[in-house]
């Protein structure tokens, strides 16, 4: 067995104390939640920390609540808790369905939503859906609290806009209106998605026209990506939009600008974007409001 390098474990009693610890240890310390990304990277010596700050000892960050027409998911809530939460399943089923598809049953039992976002792994299931849903991250550091949109917090591969002392305390997700439909789909042959695609559509009362759209393609480039131009092509009468899906996918893929890697060639990922946008469109419009 590969041993982990030595570290000290710290148990902050509250967010302020955790922020102090992170500030004090700087690059020698890191916030630790489920460990399903961090400990693997540390075991393979890709990351070295002498101090881990166990955010799970901070009370109150493991709650899921609905307030002000949005869902608040605490930073240390596990994927499994999201998957099984009656509140999420009833109020935002697409989020529960996405959580059910993350990695494997062991990762879901320990991995957290906050950890997933803060690790900023480019092949993240939650990041893609959360960007489409217009979710925001609440973060807190020594100098107070701020709120960041998904495209603000995720700035690159394994890179976030968080300051060294900042902690993601919750993700706030606006609940879908009755006129909105959502779908999350992915293509995966390895342990992480090759491509993930999330789509949120606003439909008119007849259900035959789309009044607003938000499509996100993830896992194909450094951060999940969307495009105003692609979204504009997804608005209009349903039969017209169906004819424009290929164009919308092309524009979306251009914006994402996928690269060649072990998951496949850039051309392949552009192709998959088209396939999965079409499937997501059909799925979103097939069901009840999500």
């Amino acid at each position: 067995m590969m041993p982990l390098r030595r570290f000290q474990m710290h148990q902050p009693k509250n967010v302020a104390e955790a922020a102090e610890m992170l500030a004090h240890y700087g690059e020698k310390g890191r916030l630790y939640a489920g460990g399903t990304e961090l400990l693997l990277a540390m075991k393979h010596d890709l990351l070295r920390y002498e101090h881990l700050v166990d955010v799970k000892t901070v009370p109150g960050l493991d709650k899921i609540e609905a307030k002000n027409s949005s869902l608040h998911i605490g930073g240390t809530v596990t994927h499994r808790a999201i998957e099984n939460s009656p509140l999420v399943r009833e109020r935002l089923p697409v989020m529960a369905e996405m959580a059910r598809q993350i990695a494997n049953v062991r990762v879901r039992a320990t991995g957290t939503l906050g950890g997933n976002i803060c690790f900023a792994e480019p092949h993240s299931d939650p990041a893609t859906l959360l960007l489409a849903l217009g979710a925001k991250a609440r973060v807190q550091g020594r100098n107070g609290e701020r709120t960041l949109a998904m495209n603000e917090i995720l700035v690159g591969a394994y890179e976030t806009a968080l300051a060294a002392d900042e902690i993601l305390t919750a993700i706030e997700i606006p609940l879908l209106a009755k006129s909105q439909r959502a779908a999350y789909l992915k293509f995966q042959v390895h342990e992480r998605p090759t491509l993930s695609l999330a789509l949120v559509l606003d439909v008119d009362a007849s259900g035959n026209a789309i009044t607003k759209a938000r499509a996100v393609v993830g896992s194909v480039s450094l951060t999940p990506c969307r495009s105003d131009k692609a979204d504009a092509l997804l608005v209009g009468p349903r039969d017209k939009v169906e004819k424009q899906l290929a164009d919308a996918a092309q524009v979306l893929a251009e914006a994402a600008d996928p690269g060649d890697d072990l998951e496949g060639s850039a051309e392949y990922k552009r192709h998959l974007t088209g396939v999965f946008l079409r499937r997501a469109f059909a799925q979103a419009l097939s069901g009840a409001p999500r």
């Binding site: 474990m9 460990g35 399903t36 393979h44 494997n104 320990t110």
Partner: peptide
Amino acid sequence: CEVQVCGACTVLVDGLPVSSCTYLAYE
């Protein structure tokens, strides 16, 4: 595998399966 992919090291903690290769005994 030691990267939470293969499942050979699965044990149950409070009834839930975890990858014991990368799950701290501390937990």
